[in-house]
Design a binder for these strands. Structure first.
Lengths: 244, 244
DNA sequence: GACGTAAATTTGTGATCACATATCTGGAAT
DNA sequence: ATTCCAGATATGTGATCACAAATTTACGTC
């Protein structure tokens, strides 16, 4: 469904190009684990699925490539990045360093008006954990962390952190909904919440560190296991793509 | 000078698209301080200067926008990102966290074959400091740090660090060649070198931290001083660009 | 029937065109 | 002389086309 109209009703106040919309759409999809590691995609296929020309998709993919979400292989074929175990440990260490910094700063700068909002996001996270909806849990999890880090008022650092989230998003499609992990993760989240409410910076950093290590351990049990029936490449072979 | 020939001699083994070349060219230019903060650029102007069509430049700029080097303003005008003092402090803190991690890890994994190479880069840095060539010093400085961090064998973290370097590159055009700063900086570099040679991780982290804090202090004396004759926008007004 | 080679399709890359909007230029009115 | 508005130019965005390389498919040969 190509839109022949050259976007007539654009209020011009939004300043939101088609490429930007495609970018956010794909980025959210990656973070929510809707793309499998190593999955092959095509520019034209995504463009058809999104109802646009290949051009905005190309620009969005360039940005996502710069962030490490997708890669153009040696033969210039597009695919979702597949992190190795070592790379996953690197992401873990970098997250601990950066998110620990943000959590500590957030515990200092948080005010009463933020408390209720954080608590609401925590409840939404808890709800997604009770139902074992993994994509929903991932989205709620990132929203919870993001809101906390926004309080730290360091958007540049938060941007770097989100780039790491984009990297680990696809890995989560490999891990089956693990109730035990979700319970441990929610325990860490509870401690993050408590630390923030008590304005305890070091405790917030420690809780965030535990949460990150928890997730990394969960992933490391699945990644780099050489053969464990991980046939999560292109499901069929046709240039399809998962974009809800 | 548009190249009408559809790139005939491409060995096809390089897998290096025109957009990639433009990307690296602009990225190196930004890191070396060849673009002024807030400087306005145009896609067509850069394309003409580089002798290509606007298309590869667009893709390269998209990547660099994703990395935060350039921004498309609310009115979709392209300009070099101008960091505020608060953002500069954020970059400083993130660099301390990440580069400290890499330095500590490098001190552990470094081997004898790396020693000579690091020493050579240090000498090149010293030479650029003796002559007060700021762009040359910046390039040598980033090369020195990059080589060290490569030893840490954490390419994902190094990639995040380089994104921060791209952000602070333009800021350095604001600081005049300061011999005192160069001396203090070289002192920190000497301590980094010594720590690496002694395989002392904590000392390497401390030296890198000092180096980063040093540079941040130097920059903070220039940034956010409301009016100090910083007329470093577009020098003339014509859509020119500094691309050597 | 298996394997290798060539045709056909797919796909990323780059160029060119069209268009809406922002920016600049010029002159006219106060 | 200054201000303000209309025409002209410049610029980012998106679409379409062309092309080379890679992948897939088909067919002929052993």
């Amino acid at each position: 469904m190509k839109n022949k109209k050259p976007l007539p009703p654009l209020p011009s106040v939004a300043r939101d190009s088609l490429a930007d919309q495609v970018y956010r759409h794909l980025r959210d999809g990656v973070m929510a684990g809707r793309f499998a590691p190593g999955q092959r995609l095509t520019i034209r296929g995504l463009a058809d699925a999104l109802g646009s020309s290949p051009m905005p998709v190309r620009e969005a993919l360039r940005r996502l490539q710069a962030e490490g979400a997708f890669e153009f292989s040696d033969t210039a074929r597009l695919s979702v990045v597949q992190l190795s175990g070592a790379q996953l440990r690197d992401v873990r260490d970098a997250r601990v360093a950066l998110e620990g910094l943000l959590a500590e700063r957030a515990a200092i700068r948080i005010t009463g008006v933020d408390d209720t909002e954080i608590a609401q996001l925590y409840d939404r996270l808890q709800a997604a954990a009770d139902a074992v909806d993994v994509p929903g849990y991932l989205s709620a999890n990132f929203a919870f962390h993001r809101r906390i880090y926004e309080i730290a008022q360091a958007p540049i650092i938060l941007g770097a952190v989100e780039k790491f989230w984009v990297l680990i998003g696809p890995c989560f499609v490999l891990v089956a909904p693990d109730a035990a992990h979700l319970r441990r993760s929610m325990d860490a989240h509870r401690r993050i919440l408590d630390a923030l409410m008590h304005r305890d910076g070091p405790a917030a950093r420690a809780a965030v560190t535990d949460d990150i290590m928890q997730a990394a351990n969960c992933l490391s049990r699945v990644i780099d296991k050489p053969e464990k029936k991980r046939s999560v490449a292109t499901p069929k072979g046709k240039s399809r793509n998962a974009s809800a």
